[in-house]
Simulated scan of single mutants.
Amino acid sequence: MSKPKKKVFSVTKAVKQNARDRVGTPPPEQVLPDDKQKAAARTTKHKTTLADLLTKSDRD
């Protein structure tokens, strides 16, 4: 059986761990919706048919 690999000291990891101990973990990231995706979601998915237009005008 081989020996376990030695852990190398990393200053960056030590600084981050120290900050987490003092301040706490950062809040999870909130994804902001893209304007193009919002606009695409608001549009109708299918064009209105002639029959739909005729029935709609009959109701008015």
Rank of each mutant, 00 (worst) to 15 (best):
T43E: 13
P26F: 05
A40P: 00
N18G: 14
V31N: 00
V23S: 05
H46T: 15
G24N: 02
D21G: 04
D35M: 12
D21T: 10
K16V: 13
T25V: 09
Q30E: 13
H46S: 10
P28N: 07
A40L: 14
K38E: 02
K38C: 02
K38W: 04
A41V: 09
D34E: 08
T12D: 14
Q17L: 13
T43K: 15
P27E: 08
A39D: 09
A39I: 09
K36F: 06
A40Q: 11
K13L: 09
R20I: 12
K7T: 13
S10I: 05
K16C: 08
D35H: 07
K36T: 02
K16A: 04
A41P: 00
N18I: 08
L32I: 13
Q17E: 15
G24I: 06
K38A: 04
A39Y: 06
N18R: 15
F9H: 11
V11C: 04
V31Q: 02
D34R: 08
Q37G: 02
K7Y: 10
K38H: 01
H46G: 04
P28K: 12
P33M: 02
H46F: 15
P28D: 03
Q30R: 12
K5G: 03
T12Y: 07
R20C: 06
Q17A: 15
Q30Y: 02
T44W: 07
V23W: 09
P33F: 04
K38G: 00
D35Q: 12
K5Y: 02
V15H: 00
T12C: 07
L32K: 10
E29T: 11
V31K: 03
A41C: 09
R42V: 05
K5V: 14
V15G: 00
N18C: 13
T44G: 15
T44M: 11
S10Q: 06
T43W: 05
T43I: 13
V31A: 02
K45Q: 07
V31H: 00
A14G: 05
R42L: 10
K7R: 15
V11M: 07
K5N: 06
P4G: 00
P28E: 06
T25A: 12
P26S: 11
T12G: 09
K5P: 01
P27C: 03
